[in-house]
Design a protein around this nucleic acid. Sequence first.
RNA 1: GGCUGGGUAGCUCAGCUGGUUAGAGCGAACGACUCAUAAUCGUUAGGUCGUGGGUUCAAGUCCCACUCCAGCCA
Length: 679
Amino acid sequence: MSRFYATTPIYYVNGKPHIGHAYCTTVADAAARFHRLLGEQTYFCTGTDEHGQKVQEAAEKRGIPPQQHVDELAEAFRGLLPKLHITPEQFIRTTEPRHKAVVARALQQLWDNDLIEKRSFAGWYSTAAERFWTEKDLVDGKCPDTGQEVVWLEEANYFFLMSRFQQPLIDAIESGKMRILPANRANEVLGFLREPLLDLCISRPKSRLSWGIELPFDSEYVTYVWFDALLNYVTAIGGFGAEADNAATLGEGAAPASGDKGTFETWWPHVCHFLGKDILTTHAVYWPTMLMALGLEPPRQYCVTGWWLMDNTKMSKSLGNVVDPLSLKDTYGPEVLRWFLLREMAVGQDANFSEAGLVKRNNTDLANDLGNLVQRTTALVHKHFDSQVPTLPEDRDPSPLLTSAIHLASYLCGEDTPFELTRSAQQVWPVEKTVDELKLHVTLADIMTLVQRLNQVLASDQPFKTVKTDKDAAAVTVYHALEGIRIAANLLWPAIPHTAEAILERVGWTRGVLPLADINWGDLPEGSAVPKGAGLFPRYKLDAPKDAAKPAPKPAKKAKQKGLPEITIDNAIGYDDFAKLDLRVGVVKVAEPVRKSDKLLRMEVDVGELGLRQVLAGVAKHLTPEQLVGTRIQVLTNLAPRKLMGLWSQGMMMLAETDDGRLVPMRPDGDAPAGSKIA
RNA sequence: GGCUGGGUAGCUCAGCUGGUUAGAGCGAACGACUCAUAAUCGUUAGGUCGUGGGUUCAAGUCCCACUCCAGCCA
């Protein structure tokens, strides 16, 4: 059985989590889940990087010990995961004793094998940038990055002899042993490796940096970020003697499951490192050479993700263009955010982030296509099939289009079934292929073609019609539609896990999410109960940006119909404009004159679920309080509140104004209760 | 400055080893339907495939130059 060990970078705790962290982790989570669907044994680890100067300084600034400082920040990162429905097997922190022990053992081994050397080194040091510069790097004698003063500093440090592994690394990449996706990133690394590879400085004197892991062979130094951070990938799965510590720290059940050869060999090198393109060199050059020096295989696979842009520039605090996309999870829910992140961005490329884009993805993919499909299908079951999965009648074959949907599903699941390609599905790949290539956006698009095909089937088979004349025919369509939904939901589980599980229940499936190999069309048990429920994905409307260039108002459509006179509407509004109005039936509970006003009446109006609203209306000359109390009126409830005569008005009473200036309240006919929407 | 990749319909992009009228999604327009969350289904979109040369019976698809953009490195 093949294995898949997914990692994210361990995130540096010098700030709060942002969309970049969330994205990379979400992709890794979804990829791990997809591999689980493929029947592979998977392990997924993320965590935090907690040493270094910036952390040390931040803690000093707050006047608290660094450990306390990082404990708090690590929690911010760890706490984000469940909010995004991300479920790693492990969360690792570099300040944990088990990890420090691994780092010490690894460094000692390299020292013993003469792969680490002490060298003295001199250069212009910039405190602000935390690094040395050469003479020609300097700009006007100052740090080229920060523009701050630099000082000439001479110090001895320890160097990892990385240069010795240049050729083995090139070979590993070119032979495909170390696979970097997307491919252009591999070229980038190879380009970097055309130049001579230098040795890597891996230490800092304690005088400059105390918050780090001490070198086992020189207590005057701590190790700098590389060995400290990158080795977490090995610690997490029990390398360098961490098995016992892991089991003790994580608990037996939570530690990586041991295979026949022990935990570390179980997972290494079946790893896929997910990372942003900004840390490609450290992961694809420093890290594999470190592993080679330690006698280990280089990582098998990398997935390099792009950046989310705002208005085509990188999101950055200094640019002030950060609207904290993460907060959108609170507005629209984690599943919608996950869907947007996974579906909108081609893995490896940059993409633009916008709330409008997220809303659009939600509305078109999730609400219109998927959610509505579930809704319309189960509605038929409730109306005509006693809320049970219909029984398939004998001797009735599915329609050709329905058959193609069935074939499409099994094709996605990996069977070599031919199916008819249509205009909207010209190219579809088996899930296994696109997941292997980590083109998850394509995987999701392909699965959605199944959803679209099912909508086509309903339009063409018309079960809502045939159910009246030929119930067996309707039963065939509805049964298979439910089955198609069940399989689509199963396949979508890696992206939208909670929703997928909810959909499975909705179609009467109780066996949960299955691996692809166990998905068989027709397993949905006839007669199982189909529960009722509300819509899965609400549609959202987003106000158009104020400054957006408004398209020229279109001339009103001319209604062409025989016998209907043509009219021209100069000030026509679209349905969307109308839909902005929240008109409700209200029941007047209290009505009284407003002091010092001969026009205004103050009312308290019950508008059902919206509660009691205070409404002021200028009708005192036309109506008495007695004519209003206890009666029903129409209220516009989402008009911006306004103060009149010192009193807030939280709604507008709808009135007809006659030519002679009388005001007549609009009274709802019938018995619609308070709060009913008027449309 | 060096290296790499890219400039294809309003937007986002597919177009493998050169070969019938250059494709999809979104948006837009029009039509159909009414089971459903005003949703769904269908039809339509004529874009000098960055610019200029070249190879070829034939180039978005190969070669050269130029230009613009992005990334990596220094």
